[in-house]
Amino acid sequence: MVFPGGLEALQGIHLELQAGEFVSLVGPSGCGKSTVLRMMAGLLQPTTGDVTVAGLHPRRARREKQDVSFVFQEATLLAWRSVRDNVRLPLELRGIPARQASESVQTLLALVGLTEFEDAYPRQLSGGMRMRASIARALVTRPDLLLMDEPFGSLDEITRQRLNEDLLALWMRDRWTALFVTHNVYEAVFLGGRVLVMSARPGRLVGDFDVPFQYPRPGTLRADPDFARLAGKVSDCLREHA
C-alpha cells in the first residue's frame, strides 16, 4: 500500500482469517495496522494486490451481504442522539423502521450492559460506556466480520480488562470473525486465538503466534505463567522489528 505522496505504508502483507476466528494484530504506532483494517472494510483500496471478504471485493461484500462492521479508536457516536438511537443507526441506514429494529437494539443494549442508559446522550456516559455503545452499534447488524481499531486504547486499565472479557463473551455467543488491532501485547494475547505481529513502517507481517488457551478465558489467565511467557515472546518479536 503506497499513499499518494509516496508514503509506503504496507509491504507484502499476506493474511487470511478463518471464519469465526479471533485474530489480534499488534504493531508499533504508525506501522499501518489501521490501514490493513480500512482495506478490509473497503474504505481504502490497496495499491497492488487484493482483499476479499467471503470471496468478494470488500465493497461488494458490504453491498450484497452487509456483513462487515467496524469499531473505531474513538466511540464515534452521534452527540445529538441517545444511546438507543446511536445503536439503532446502522439498521436505520438500511431502511429498517424503528419499531422493527427495536428488538435487536434492546438485545444488544442488554448484552453490553447499557439498558439503563438507553435514553442517555453520549456526553453523559463515561469513556468505557461510550465504547460499549459503539460495540453494540457495530454488532446490531449481526456482522460476520468485526474489525476493531484499538477500540480500548484510551481507556484506563481496569475498564480495558473488563471490556476485553465482555468482548470475548459477546464473541463466544455469536462467533463472528474478529480482527482486533492494538499496540498492547497483553490485550492481544488475552483476546486472540492468533496474534499477528507487524513491523514498523513500511508494515510487514513478522510474526504469527498461536495462542493455545481455551475459551472462555477467565480474567485470571493474565496471571498465568504460560500467558506471561507467550506475551514475552510476542513482545520480543515486536521489539526486534520496531
Binding site: 480500512r38 472494510a41 474504505l43 458490504r62 453491498r63 452487509q66 462487515v68 462492521s69 467496524f70 473505531f72 464515534t76 452521534l78 443507526l89 446502522p90 441506514l93 438500511r94 447488524t141
Partner: peptide
C-alpha cells in the same frame, strides 16, 4: 463518522 456511514452504504 463519514467512514461509518460509508461502511453502512
Amino acid at each position: 463518522l463519514l467512514e461509518l456511514f460509508e461502511l453502512y452504504n
